[in-house]
Write a protein that binds this DNA or RNA. Sequence first.
RNA 1: GGGCGGUUAGCUCAGUUGGUUAGAGCGCUACGUUGACAUCGUAGAGGUCACAAGUUCGAAUCUUGUAUCGCCCACCA
Length: 914
Amino acid sequence: MSELASKYDPTQVEESLYKNWKDSGCFVPSKKAGAKPYTIVIPPPNVTGILHMGHALNNTIQDILIRWKRMQGQDVLWVPGTDHAGIATQNVVEKSIAKEGKKRQDLGREAFLEKVWEWKEQYGGRILYQLERLGSSCDWNHTRFTMDEGLSDAVKEVFVRLYEEGLIYRGSYIINWCPRCQTALADEEAPREEAQGKLYHIKYPIYENSRFEGQSYEPESPSLNLQDGDAFIEVATTRPETLLGDTAIAVHPEDERLAQYIGKHALLPLVGRKIPIIADTMVDLEFGTGAVKITPAHDPADFQTGKRHDLAFINVMTDDARMQGVSPAYEGLDRFECRSKIIIDLEMQHFLGPVDEHAHNVGHCYRCHTVVEPRMSPQWFVSMQKLAEPAIKAVKDGDLRFSPNRWSKVYLNWMENIQDWCISRQIWWGHRLPVWYCDPCAGKGGDTAGVVVSKQTPDGCPKCGNEKLRQDPDVLDTWFSSWLWPFSTLGWPEKTEDLERFYPTNTLVTAPDIIFFWVARMVMAGFYCMGKQPFSDVYIHGVVRDITGRKMSKSLGNSIDPLEVVDQYGTDALRYTLITSTAIGQDIFLAEERFLVGRNFANKLWNATRFVLSKTDGAIDCSLPEKASLTLADKWIVSRLQHTIKQVTRSLEQFMLNEAATTLYDFIWKDFCDWYIEIAKVQSREGDEAQTQRVLFFVLENIYRLLHPFMPFVTEVLWQQVQGQDAETAFSSTNPSIMTAEWPKAHSAWMDEVAEAQLESFKKVIVSIRNTKAELNVGRDKKPSILLRTENEDMASFLTQQIPLLQSLAQVGEVTVDAKADRPEASAASVVDGIEVFVLLAGLIDVSAERERIHGRVVELTQVLQGMEKRLNNKQFVDKAPDEVVAEARSKKAQVQETLQKFEAHLKVLETLV
RNA sequence: GGGCGGUUAGCUCAGUUGGUUAGAGCGCUACGUUGACAUCGUAGAGGUCACAAGUUCGAAUCUUGUAUCGCCCACCA
């Protein structure tokens, strides 16, 4: 048997092992007949992505589930891939050509897209390679990209279907416009952030019965200003520059203060345009002045009001948010410059009222953080309400489950208040809309006149035969391809075998921030295209944060690079620490030191194996010997193993991965290494060595399999060692990988409550002796004699058998088991589980130093005991609580009493030794 | 303005359906190189479970309220 190094070095094995797995086809679905499929589709990382801790956590969770299900014999498919990430990727390439002083417009659409594809070919695989380093067992043959031919076909297919059913429409609405990216954004792409702004009060002169009435004012030469005595109505706004586009003032119909103005007109300051004063319930009586300036082309609420009252829509800005076409005084100014100038002008002409500090929420572009401009613009939309219906029902009926369940509320709340989805983007990188326009036909008939929607590039206009059709320059929102991901990756709209076998998928593992963007929309698309929900479980894991609670991000510079962790501690350590750190759905606050825990754990297992292997020279037998020939300790560890198998499996079924991981940790470290291996050393020396070896290997081999989904590398290496195989040569049916080994099953026949109880008692005896030795400062090299007394004959005979074990584990000398023996002179006594333990101390310790310390502890424990007695003397407790609870309370009280007695005995012992 | 989550040992976190001495890792203290592991072992110190009231024989756990930190949603201009 080859010698193992004294330390586990992950860098030695990980890379070649991963390659061997991959080359040997271990990640490919087995397609075994009768095997139930289990499918996960990866949340496709952006092609621009660089692996961060969030990815590491997300993929570790998926890989654990995948490896576990694979070992359970299911036909497992994990579909990897990347997302083309429209705006993000375009930004990256724009930045890179900016270094050469170029803009995308300089290159033109085609040449620019070529650049993007070049970039994608060069760097787009980077994130996938990084996923490999995490040990991800994806089927790389199934790798997909949202702009692959097949997926693009799916996008067009859905667009055309939705259009033909009237669920996609084009129209002018208020959208979020990013002036830097120069594109529309969906609501979800423009998250609001609180900003400290100002609320400007502006006075609009009343037109009727004023000195202005009957005069006309040229907008080009605004000459009005406000004078004392002029009647005016005051409004409040945070964006004064938009007044250039005002087409009304609204007051609440029940506002008595302002009712006199309804139906009259006001003059727009600085411009002189006459605008109506209307009544509308959109106005909040409590806020501001009670009057609202209405700018229908630049505010969503105003837009609705404008529609209701048939107001004019005046767009006052260009695509890059410069003022346009309203007033020569402001023409071409940036919106914020214009704001400053307008305020000064308002002040000069006495229109400005008070200016208040005002905290409000402002939308920002999720890609470049520019303040978005709400703006009316012609865009394409998906009508969502109908699509949402089955997606709501599935969650309400429990067919689609969220873990933790609370996210289903968030999902339902969004779904039930769903807004139409703006899907057109004015960028170049992405799926171009399958929409063409016939200019001659436009305007003849309804909205759809001159619009041709088709999967194939049309030869000409079906109405007039015009061959010069113009394709819509816009591309689709990135999420318009990712919402199809669970089935487009499997071949849809083709009817493929994959689709037949692996759809619907099973578990979706993702972070909470894309529930709306992605999860909700996938559910809708799944029902719409496939008639079935795309997955049955959605596991929402936490967000990875640094120790101060901030989200880890590159820009904050507070992120821990997972690849550096892998280099330093190993992939298994990274995975183990991430998993134990994340209780279901809770955010992780991660400090780098925690990876030591994972590293040490891998090393512990490595060394346990090293020890067991070092005692073996022949063939390794991992099978369990006949039950009759097992020692008590053997039965105990085998029984503990069964419980561990049961609990780990159950935890995995409930997505409680951290619990599964810590259960394994405790079993491996405490039960197996701290106790069983130590026992095995004595058993090998004093008893049947070969037999003990078999038990050691049996348990170890089960441990590797249980731990494999969590720590795939070290478990594979050690399992191969124990199997006498070679992890370097290709895996096959004759040289199998642990990946295809069977997930352990718990056998109730091997559970042995008696053995567990006896060994637990035995452990307590040992701990008690160690404790006494430490409490009384007996030197480690000194081996006191021990007397054990128990009335229980089974226990007595069992203890007698374990004397050599006891001597070795507790470091004691002569041991006597005798129920009838007198209490020895100068001995410390304690009682555990009905066994009286006497440690003979004469001549072994220095007394006077210990006495005071122990006295203190006696006082302490006495108090505890008083509390417990009070409880047990409570008649209601004894009468009403379940019997076993009362019994347990009694036994615990007895325990405390025993401990107390032990210390009191210590004191007496000390007296006798003076 | 609504909704959700957190508050447990010096630090980072667990804690199943309420059950009586509240757990782990790190850190700390003492001892230790007994034939795997110092990335280790043995033993120990350390917590009025944010606060208040309530339900109960019994609350870290359930109810209500308060404080505080954080997240999400929302057309107070």
